[in-house]
Every structure is written in structure tokens, then in C-alpha cells.
Design a protein around this nucleic acid. Structure first.
Length: 350
DNA sequence: GGATCCTTCTTCTTCTTC
């Protein structure tokens, strides 16, 4: 159920701000429109406001046009945010469907799984300075709805913690995430030196990471044959790069794995927002990067919790990965369009 | 050595009643 937070009556239309959507329009029910009913308006000084009421109620003569109404709506409620359902009815498709897999590369061989995991460091110097990253592209192509909820969340947090408190809180979340990644990097690198070795559960970790490690221990049991850790991937034709958390077998399936920490439970894939798109982007890049001689068509998002409660693992089948790959291509197209608009406006200024 | 980059996170319903 959605809760109505605010009700406004404008031109015979009820505007409801619900907990789910900022505003929704409904026609006023007859009981609210009918003058016969005892309404709150009955106490209004009708003589004093008669000319205003007449001008509002008159349908034959109106100074308002669709254009002025639109401008007024924009002024009061801000720009219209497209409902999600519209997108479902008319799904957008990328202009060009670039292949997710590289047909020239054969599937991974067992030989590649026996050595140490690959770890290609990010080197921005080698003509890569202008290549955009997965994170940047996703951040710059957030939907209006995502921006709305993120900004609302930030405002609420600042009200609660203050500017400085919020800054520290965010910093703390980032720090915990980084330490968790470092601990995983260490454990996965050392344990992979011996093929299919079970990952140790007895190791000691820093206090702020201990809970997260406990949280993922049941997942780590099913992770083996680690091939890459914190390694740079770059799509050779689509020209973007990123740093993949991990490439390994999970329950026997070779996947791109993304480790996440979260304060809130994320039991469903839909709770992970753009994370699946990020994973598909990394996998697509890896499949089209000469440094990796194998193909990955599946993914895994692991959400770990600080209190040690079991992490949620969301597996992305090859079908799902293809869907998210298409979404990634859309975001990439959007980013490229933004960039070319910025470039052309910059050249006009010069 | 400093600056910059990639990443690390953050969103989608909240309160009442049974």
C-alpha cells in the first residue's frame, strides 16, 4: 500500500503525493466536486472571492492556454518525471547491439585456471587518459528518478547528521568497502595458489571487516579457480574501461563477481540498482580485451553485511547478463551523446 | 612528490493495527 503524503486540489484535479511517487494525478471524485455536499469550502466568504471563483470555474472564457498551464505546472511541480511503466510499455533498445561475447576467443581452458590470478593495474598513462570508466558512465547517466531519490536521501541524512556528520558517514562507508575488498583480495590471491583450495575461515581481520567476512564465508566456500582479482579491463571497440573485482568459478560457473557492502538488506536483485549493469559492462569489456584469453558470460553480485548475517548472492545467468548488456549499451550511448553535446558547445564557446 | 583516476557507498513505503 502507498501512503498519501500531500493532497493538492488544482483545477478540479486531485494531486496526490504518495510515498512511492512524488505526484500522481487523479480526477476529483464527485463527492469532492459536487457543491451540494457539505464541503470545507462552504465556510469561504463567497462574495469576497466571487470574481476569482468565476474566473476559475468558467470554462468558456479562460486566459490560460496549454502553454501557460504547462509553464505553471513546471513552476509548481518541476519537470515531469516519466513513470516507469512507460519504459516497460515501450522498451528502448540500443542503436547498435555490440556483441557481448567475442566469437574469436574460444571458451576458457583448464590450463588458465591453475596459475595465480591476473591483476592488471590501472595505468592511465598509456593513451587511456580519455577513456571513460564504467563508474563514471553509470553515474553520469542516472535516471531522473534515481537522482530524485538519491538527493532526497542525502537531504534527509544531512538533516539527521549535519553536513559534517554526513561527510564522515559517507567516508566511513567507503573506507569499510575498501577494507572489505582488500581482505577479499588477500584471501583470494593466497588461496588460489593451490587449485580449488577451500578458503580459510579462521583468519583474523580488522574489526570493521570481520563481520563482512563472516557474512560472505558461506559464499566463499563455493568460489574457486580465481582467474583475476582487482584487474583492469578495457573494451577495445567500445572504448571504456573498468576494474573488475574478481573473476572466478562460483558453484562451477565462471563469473564476474562484484563484492558489495550494504547497511540495508538486499535480498532481491532489484535491490542492487545499477550493480548488474556494472557487472555486465565489466564482463563485456573482459570478453573484448586481448589481455584475457577466455570468455565470461555469467555474473555474481554478493551483498555482505556488517553484523555477519549471511550475505545475499545474486547470480546473473547468461540470459540476464545479455539483458543487462543491452541496458549498458543504452547508458553508454547516452553518455557518448552527452559528451558530444558538451564538446560541440565547448567548441562554439572558443 | 603531487594530482588524477577507479573504486569504495547512497535510492525504490512507512506507519498502524491485528
Amino acid at each position: 500500500m502507498y501512503t498519501v503524503k500531500r493532497v493538492l486540489m488544482v483545477r478540479g484535479i486531485l494531486l496526490l503525493e504518495t510515498t512511492a511517487f512524488p505526484f500522481r494525478h487523479f480526477s476529483a471524485p464527485p463527492c469532492l466536486r459536487s457543491p451540494k455536499r457539505n464541503s470545507p469550502y462552504s465556510s469561504v466568504d463567497s462574495e469576497r472571492y466571487s470574481s476569482l471563483v468565476k474566473s476559475v470555474m468558467s470554462t468558456r472564457v479562460s486566459s490560460q492556454t496549454p502553454e501557460t498551464l504547462h509553464a505553471e505546472d513546471e513552476h509548481i511541480y518541476g519537470p515531469v518525471i516519466k513513470a516507469q511503466t512507460d519504459a516497460r510499455i515501450k522498451p528502448r533498445t540500443p542503436k547498435t547491439i555490440h556483441p557481448f561475447l567475442n566469437c574469436e576467443e574460444a571458451g576458457g581452458t583448464e590450463d588458465a585456471e591453475s596459475g595465480l590470478p591476473v591483476q592488471i593495474a590501472l595505468n592511465r598513462g598509456q593513451g587511456r587518459s580519455s577513456v571513460p570508466s564504467v563508474t563514471r558512465i553509470l553515474q553520469q547517466t542516472l535516471s531522473q528518478e534515481q537522482i530524485f531519490y538519491l538527493e532526497r536521501w542525502k537531504r534527509r541524512m544531512i538533516l539527521e547528521l549535519g553536513e559534517e556528520g554526513f561527510r564522515q558517514h559517507s567516508q566511513n562507508l567507503f573506507r569499510q568497502g575498501k577494507r572489505f575488498h582488500s581482505a577479499l583480495e588477500e584471501i583470494l590471491t593466497s588461496s588460489s595458489s593451490e587449485k580449488d583450495k577451500t578458503i580459510s575461515e579462521t583468519a583474523e581481520y580488522p574489526a570493521d571487516v570481520q563481520g563482512y567476512m563472516e557474512s560472505v564465508s558461506h559464499i566463499l566456500k563455493d568460489v574457486n579457480a580465481v582467474r583475476a582479482i582487482e584487474s583492469t579491463v578495457q573494451h577495445e571497440t567500445l572504448n571504456y574501461l573498468g576494474v573488475v573485482d574478481c573473476v572466478a568459478r562460483y558453484k562451477g560457473v565462471l563469473c564476474v563477481i562484484d563484492w558489495k557492502t550494504s547497511e540495508r538488506a538486499k535480498p532481491f536483485l532489484s535491490n542492487t540498482y545499477d550493480n548488474p549493469i556494472q557487472v555486465a559492462a565489466y564482463a563485456g569489456a573482459l570478453n573484448n580485451d586481448v589481455n584475457y584469453k577466455y570468455q565470461v558470460d555469467s555474473g555474481l553480485i554478493v551483498v555482505a553485511y556488517k553484523d555477519g548475517s549471511p550475505a545475499h548472492a545474486h547470480q546473473l545467468s547468461s540470459e540476464l547478463m545479455l539483458d543487462f548488456w543491452k541496458t549498458w549499451l543504452l547508458r553508454l550511448e547516452e553518455f557518448t551523446e552527452q559528451r558530444s553535446i558538451q564538446a560541440s558547445s565547448a567548441s562554439l564557446e572558443n
